Simulated scan of single mutants.
Amino acid sequence: MSDLAAKGGVVAAAKKALFLVFHIGTERYALKATEVAEVLPRRPLKPIAHTPAWVAGIFAHRGVMVPVIDLSALTFGSPAQARTSTRLVLVNYRPEPWVDARWLGLILEQATDTLRCDPADFQPYGLDNRQAPYLGPVREDEQGLMQWIGVGDLLTAQVRTLLFSDDLTPQEAR
């Protein structure tokens, strides 16, 4: 193999990113692996009163209270099915650059596969879905469409305040 071909292979590999693939019903979605802190089995959660139905609860992990949302319930209004492949995925939630990343738990169905691809393969799908800003671009392959989920856009400001009240700026705390 020539040096030029070897360098080309390194550049092509550098453009690719790893994604965690999961399902909501029959539809495929992806999270960028750099946003995933840990993939855990489902576990019992303590419910949180007066939160939206898609806020599944909280649990203690390594001395930290972690809020958990059910992405299926958030997206389509139906809770994730309890399957052996349903996971509790800890993501590094960082809604704003000045806010330190915090763990946020996501209940995800069939979260057992990964995909390595060029992030540029995901393309805008032409809709302005302001009710679900976390639904990012889509990628087409032999299995159909897959949509990228934007972790930083998962929570509205109101829900973020409920779940992460200590992240408030001085102006928001008033």
Rank of each mutant, 00 (worst) to 15 (best):
A6D: 12
G9W: 01
G9F: 00
V11R: 14
A12M: 12
A13S: 13
K16S: 07
K16W: 03
F19N: 04
L20N: 07
L20F: 01
V21N: 03
I24G: 00
G25P: 05
E27N: 10
Y29M: 00
A33R: 07
A37V: 09
V39G: 02
L40W: 06
P41N: 06
R42Q: 14
R42L: 15
K46H: 11
I48W: 01
I48L: 15
A49D: 12
H50K: 14
T51F: 04
P52E: 10
A53L: 11
W54N: 07
V55T: 08
V55N: 11
R62M: 05
M65N: 13
V68H: 09
I69D: 07
S72Y: 02
A73H: 15
A73C: 14
A73F: 10
L74S: 00
G77Y: 07
G77D: 09
P79D: 04
P79T: 02
S85A: 15
S85I: 03
V91I: 04
V91Y: 01
E96R: 15
V99W: 05
A101P: 12
R102S: 07
W103I: 04
W103A: 05
G105W: 03
G105S: 01
L106P: 00
L106T: 02
I107R: 12
D113C: 03
R116M: 13
C117D: 14
P119Q: 04
P124A: 08
Y125I: 09
G126K: 12
L127Q: 14
D128Q: 13
N129Q: 13
R130D: 12
Q131P: 01
Y134A: 08
L135I: 11
P137E: 01
P137L: 03
E140D: 07
E142W: 06
Q143A: 10
Q143S: 12
G144I: 02
G144M: 00
M146D: 08
W148M: 15
I149E: 07
I149K: 06
V151P: 11
V151L: 11
D153I: 04
L155W: 11
T156P: 10
T156Y: 07
V159A: 03
T161G: 09
L163A: 08
L163M: 10
S165F: 03
S165D: 13
L168C: 01
T169P: 01
R174H: 12
R174L: 13
